[in-house]
């Protein structure tokens, strides 16, 4: 572990993001604190991906402010993101991780050990020399996770990481997420899979049309939703 500084808590106040005339995030105020994974749920177009990008620092809000651990210009060193469709660099699995280690400033001498640890964490030890682009979808997601973890993040953002995976591959990913969260890394993830939200979520954020509708501990959210929209969403009804 490197410097103990952290990006937590992440405090968003009145975050608004527009794309032309369309408002994607509409005054989101939300605090992300240390603890069990925070799960973002909501229908397509609710703004989950954009929220994650804002939290990562990849998208600039048109209005509102964001503070990472008391700083508003925090470098991305302590944060990492896995996109819904991660792009594999045209190199071997191990070289993909090496690249991320280099980008995070990890000394070259430590690369070999780190790569071995990370590959073993995501269960890809046997595929280290395989070209990353020849891996299956699930394997690519796991490699993307390893690549994100190479940055030794205090916050790990996951965007629909299991969206197109079969149950076995999904389980492999969930196990990794649990292990990572167990090490004290704050996971913020979006998902369509309510079961997954139940299985992994410490707290749940329901988003709809760019706004946060309801936020609360997972158990409470699913057992006693406070809003009509949350109740409808949990019941599998369409939010329009």
């Amino acid at each position: 572990m490197r410097a103990p500084d952290t990006d937590l808590p992440i405090v968003l106040s009145g975050i608004t993001v527009k794309a032309g005339a369309v408002t994607i995030l509409d005054g989101v105020t939300q605090t992300i604190a240390a603890g069990a994974p925070t799960v973002l749920i909501g229908p397509n177009g609710a703004g989950k991906t954009t929220l994650l990008r804002v939290v990562m620092g990849l998208a600039k809000p048109d209005a509102g402010s964001i503070v990472w651990g008391n700083r508003d210009d925090a470098a991305k060193v302590r944060r990492a993101i896995v996109f819904q469709r991660p792009v594999m660099l045209r190199r071997s699995a191990a070289a993909n991780i090496a690249y991320a280690l280099g980008a995070a400033g990890v000394p070259r001498a430590q690369h070999e050990t780190c790569i071995a640890e990370l590959l073993s964490l995501v269960g890809l030890d046997a595929l280290a020399t395989r070209p990353a682009r020849k891996l299956s979808g699930g394997e690519q997601q796991r490699l993307a996770l390893a690549r994100a973890l190479a940055r030794d993040p205090s916050v790990l953002l996951l965007d629909e990481t299991t969206a197109s995976l079969d149950p076995a591959a999904t389980k492999a990913i969930e196990d990794i997420i649990r292990a990572v969260a167990g090490r004290g890394v704050k996971v913020v993830m979006s998902t369509h899979d309510l079961g997954q939200a139940r299985r992994l979520g410490g707290d749940v954020v329901l988003m709809h049309r760019g706004r946060v509708i309801e936020h609360g501990p997972a158990a409470q959210f699913f057992a006693q939703p406070k809003t009509e929209q949350a109740r409808a969403f949990i019941a599998g009804e369409l939010l329009v």
Binding site: K76, V77, Y99, A103, R151
Partner: peptide, 20 residues
């Protein structure tokens, strides 16, 4: 276009970007 987000997330500077 394909790599932009990924490289931005890894904080890759302009020179290293060209190399990559």
């Amino acid at each position: 276009l394909e790599y932009r987000d990924e490289l931005a997330a890894m904080d890759i500077g302009p020179a290293a970007r060209i190399g990559t």
